[in-house]
Write a protein that binds this DNA or RNA. Structure first.
Lengths: 149, 149
DNA sequence: GGAGAGAATGCAAATGGAATGCATTTGCAA
DNA sequence: TTGCAAATGCATTCCATTTGCATTCTCTCC
């Protein structure tokens, strides 16, 4: 297989997980994807790509990966579906365009100062957060503004 | 009924919705609740309180309220359930304690500057956001730290 | 390299939150 | 008060996710 799979093999081993082709395939797809994917999206892509896989395997694998912190899980009010993405250990958020449904990744994160404030003010120790920002992307802004006039 | 119901009556009317006892009851419960509620939590509370109501009515009512912007909808990775709260039109976020599962409301919001940055940098117009912060609350921090030593 | 143990997978069925179709009831304007 | 549209109840369906169990596969140890 490919070079990165050897990489993943070690990662899985370190976490006490067995290396299987399904797991490699899922990791690879998540790695290639620019935005978080639902279990079903992954399932369809996997069917097209590898021999065959069962949807429950996809769910179980994603669950295991999430518990080992290899994968991050997020949910969206929008359609109620849960999405998964590789934990790149770099901090990232997504902008969601309510018009064209595009997801845009950003590196900015405004939580830093708030974290300190919360610690000082009410002794709350922040360990993580989800931020979901929605609005109009560049393209849709143009359309949106034109229609409004 | 109570004074605030007269209030709600006008609100509903303005939005072109009929005033019913179920709607008042739901609004009242949401008003009294300190944290967002699931449809089912509301259903159980309503059953205990008013004569009888159907779960699908709860869902439909919350949906209608949400579309009229009287109610805000949010979802949590935690249990995957959707929660509803009254739209108080004041901006608010919640801290979620991963240890005791308490929800704490805060008024701080760190999105302001980011909003401007996004507009300038990539012409993204933010219209809304969800922020979910998790960590250890004051009480659990004490326990947590003691155990860690 | 091969056997054995335990983990991973496939398959089918179950679960559970949410949505829906339709008959009935209710709110409200005229 | 009456009539109509909106709201509700009830039963059913939908659909994402989970689960139990039999089978297959990985990996360790010899």
């Amino acid at each position: 297989m490919l070079a990165e799979n050897i990489n993943y093999k070690d990662v899985l081993k370190k976490e006490g997980m067995k290396s299987t082709k399904h797991r490699f395939a899922i990791l690879e797809l998540l790695e290639q994807s620019e935005s978080p994917l639902t279990a079903e999206q992954l399932f369809i892509m996997l069917r097209a790509k590898t021999a065959s896989i069962n949807l429950s395997t996809v769910y179980r694998t994603l669950d295991t990966f999430t518990s080992k912190n290899l994968v991050l899980k997020s949910s969206r009010v929008d359609d109620g579906k849960v999405r998964y993405e590789l934990n790149q250990h770099e901090h990232k958020h997504h902008l969601y365009c309510v018009s064209c449904h595009k997801l845009i990744s950003i590196e900015e994160c405004p939580i830093g100062e708030l974290k300190q404030t919360l610690k000082n003010k009410i002794d709350f120790e922040v360990t993580g957060h989800n931020l979901e920002i929605y609005g109009y992307c560049h393209n849709c802004r143009k359309v949106h503004n034109n229609n409004a006039q």
